[in-house]
Amino acid sequence: MSRVPSPPPPAEMSSGPVAESWCYTQIKVVKFSYMWTINNFSFCREEMGEVIKSSTFSSGANDKLKWCLRVNPKGLDEESKDYLSLYLLLVSCPKSEVRAKFKFSILNAKGEETKAMESQRAYRFVQGKDWGFKKFIRRDFLLDEANGLLPDDKLTLFCEVSVVQDSVNISGQNTMNMVKVPECRLADELGGLWENSRFTDCCLCVAGQEFQAHKAILAARSPVFSAMFEHEMEESKKNRVEINDVEPEVFKEMMCFIYTGKAPNLDKMADDLLAAADKYALERLKVMCEDALCSNLSVENAAEILILADLHSADQLKTQAVDFINYHASDVLETSGWKSMVVSHPHLVAEAYRSLASAQCPFLGPPRKRLKQS
């Protein structure tokens, strides 16, 4: 649940008159999402009104509101027999009622949201009550392989729920002597030191190019640089560091992050930047690179990204790559990247197969709970 924001200063709310007192009302909304995959969808019983329910879910471990999704594969009634019906059901509720908006969509073979439908307002739910769409999607369109909505005969539904909580009022009075504290510009100011090479005390040599930097900042941000300058190493004695395995453009992006906490060109060089972040123990930059690479996972590059993640101990990226390969196994196994990995990294192939087997055979063990970014 997000923290209630402070109200904007009255002088910034309007260029008009300023009242002596004010009130700011925040209506709290808890948002969460749920993904439900139905394997072997074409084998569902086709009687009209037949119901399939998901397991229950909530916004978190401490949330007492429990929900589930309900599907009628062949419609709810005679009117909707040519459609799939989809509903959000409130299973248990400690209150007399709650209000919530919802959005349903289908994830296609690429994991993209399609055929989205959402409620136009927050509906009133009581325990045992459901709301949804009797005519969510035509069955003939859903079952047509050309539309790519049932890869490997799996129907994957994605649901986003927004639950309306209580409202909170914050009130106060205006004073004539309003003090406005300026925003912190530390990142910009440190970035200026790097860009202008002011007050530098060490030189970093990268592929024949020299960059002036500040030992204190490098040591504070990177345990690797800290070790170089702290001990009686040649880098500490000469205040000069030779860097041979990072390209200059990648190095500059890494230094921008060290000084400012930002990497504006990360998406263009996420793979190389991940390697640099791993070498210099820049954990936050490493996770930022993992996130960017996750966003660009595809059938063509899944094997290469899995190898990269394994090489640099990028655990979150590795998990996402394995899950992606499992979901698109029939396509990924035909790529040149996968065939190369079979020869060069057989242990990763074995890991992917083990994960695929456990996903398809849940009876082999208890269900695993899916539970950071600093």
Rank of each mutant, 00 (worst) to 15 (best):
3 R>I: 02
4 V>I: 06
6 S>H: 01
10 P>N: 05
15 S>F: 05
18 V>Q: 07
18 V>F: 03
19 A>P: 05
21 S>V: 12
21 S>W: 14
25 T>H: 05
26 Q>Y: 09
26 Q>L: 11
26 Q>N: 09
27 I>C: 06
28 K>E: 05
29 V>N: 08
30 V>Y: 12
31 K>P: 10
31 K>G: 11
32 F>N: 11
32 F>D: 04
37 T>Q: 04
37 T>A: 10
39 N>V: 04
40 N>A: 06
41 F>N: 08
41 F>L: 02
43 F>H: 14
43 F>L: 02
44 C>R: 10
44 C>L: 05
44 C>V: 12
46 E>P: 11
47 E>R: 12
53 K>V: 04
54 S>N: 01
57 F>R: 00
62 N>I: 13
67 W>H: 00
68 C>N: 09
69 L>M: 07
70 R>E: 08
73 P>K: 09
75 G>C: 09
78 E>K: 10
78 E>T: 14
80 S>Y: 05
80 S>G: 07
81 K>R: 12
82 D>L: 10
86 L>Q: 14
87 Y>R: 00
94 P>I: 10
94 P>D: 15
94 P>F: 11
97 E>Q: 10
99 R>Q: 13
99 R>F: 15
100 A>Y: 06
100 A>M: 07
101 K>T: 14
101 K>Q: 09
102 F>Y: 01
102 F>R: 00
106 I>G: 05
107 L>M: 14
107 L>E: 09
108 N>H: 15
116 A>Q: 08
117 M>F: 12
118 E>M: 02
123 Y>F: 14
123 Y>P: 07
131 W>T: 00
138 R>V: 12
139 R>K: 07
139 R>I: 08
140 D>N: 08
143 L>H: 13
148 G>R: 07
149 L>P: 12
150 L>Y: 07
151 P>V: 05
152 D>W: 10
155 L>H: 03
157 L>F: 06
157 L>K: 00
158 F>S: 12
159 C>W: 04
162 S>G: 11
162 S>R: 13
163 V>S: 09
166 D>L: 10
168 V>C: 04
173 Q>W: 05
181 V>M: 05
183 E>Q: 06
185 R>G: 08
185 R>F: 06
185 R>I: 04
187 A>R: 02
189 E>P: 09
192 G>P: 09
195 E>W: 07
196 N>A: 03
199 F>E: 15
200 T>Q: 11
200 T>W: 15
200 T>V: 12
205 C>W: 09
208 G>N: 13
210 E>F: 08
211 F>D: 03
213 A>S: 05
215 K>W: 11
218 L>E: 01
218 L>R: 00
218 L>K: 00
219 A>P: 00
220 A>P: 14
221 R>F: 15
222 S>P: 00
222 S>L: 13
223 P>F: 08
224 V>N: 11
226 S>F: 13
226 S>Y: 15
229 F>M: 15
230 E>G: 10
232 E>P: 12
235 E>K: 02
236 S>I: 04
237 K>N: 01
252 K>R: 04
253 E>G: 02
254 M>S: 04
255 M>P: 00
258 I>M: 12
265 N>H: 04
271 D>P: 09
275 A>K: 06
276 A>Y: 02
284 R>S: 04
286 K>F: 02
289 C>M: 11
289 C>Q: 00
290 E>M: 11
290 E>Q: 03
290 E>F: 14
291 D>H: 13
291 D>W: 15
293 L>R: 09
295 S>F: 07
295 S>A: 15
297 L>N: 00
299 V>I: 12
302 A>R: 00
303 A>D: 00
303 A>T: 08
304 E>R: 08
312 H>N: 04
316 Q>S: 03
319 T>A: 11
320 Q>G: 03
321 A>W: 01
322 V>Y: 11
323 D>I: 06
324 F>H: 12
324 F>G: 00
326 N>Q: 13
326 N>G: 05
327 Y>N: 10
328 H>S: 08
329 A>H: 01
330 S>L: 06
335 T>E: 13
336 S>G: 02
343 V>C: 03
346 P>W: 07
349 V>M: 07
352 A>K: 00
353 Y>I: 02
361 C>I: 13
361 C>D: 12
362 P>E: 08
362 P>N: 15
363 F>G: 11
365 G>D: 15
370 R>F: 08
370 R>W: 01
371 L>H: 13
372 K>P: 07
373 Q>K: 12
373 Q>L: 12
